[in-house]
Design a protein around this nucleic acid. Sequence first.
DNA 1: ATGGTAGAAACTCTA
Length: 254
Amino acid sequence: MKLATWNVNSLRVRLPQLLAWLTAHQPDLVCLQETKTEDANFPRQDIEQAGYRVCFSGQKTYNGVAILARAELADVTLGIPGFQDEQKRVIAATCDGVRAVCVYVPNGESVDSDKYQYKLRWLGALHGWLADELRRYPRLTILGDYNIAPEERDVHDPKLWEGKVLFSEPERVAFRKLLELGFKDGFRLFEQPEKSFTWWDYRMNQFKRNMGLRIDHILLTPELAARAHASAIHKDVRAQERPSDHAPVVVELG
DNA sequence: ATGGTAGAAACTCTA
């Protein structure tokens, strides 16, 4: 079972790239973030014609998440239960015995911003919810754009990024606390090239210079981690014409 | 210290 996550930064713009990528790699389950699409405008037909079921939770202009899967999607839930949030950032579904949670963690803007406080509160709510979900689902995976680079090796220039949003200590602590619930970082289960990143700012040729961060992750419960046999970042997708600023991340389970 | 780019929407906000 091939699992993937990709922040598409507008599903409308990226739809041709998404369809080509689905055809090329045949993932079984794909989580999308920043669809920036109201549900009424979601390109359901194009995706179903490509052989995927779909569930989604979107809004105009900002945010928006979706799950695509070759098999049936059951027990779809939206948002973090008990956490009031206008922003469409979470959708979860069960597929082939695997519970998948698609997350688009708030960016936070900067550490002195109200949005950063919202990000930390949001991560606290996610932690509380996942602690419960773990009791219900031994085969649980959390895929998405976490907007957090967990370690120094996940940042092209850790000195430059020290204390900055996406790499500040409170966010990294919040990420570690998710791992401490019992999750494994799917990408790091296997040997990987140095300077592996999933996001590069559009500005200043940062992709060409590989000035990126690894902020998109696939977390796995131990039972799923034991089934994993490969992981990769599809960096070539970020090199295409008119790309998203994120590359897809893939984990393959047996 | 600033601004660089992209997307959506609408002359600005978010990332």
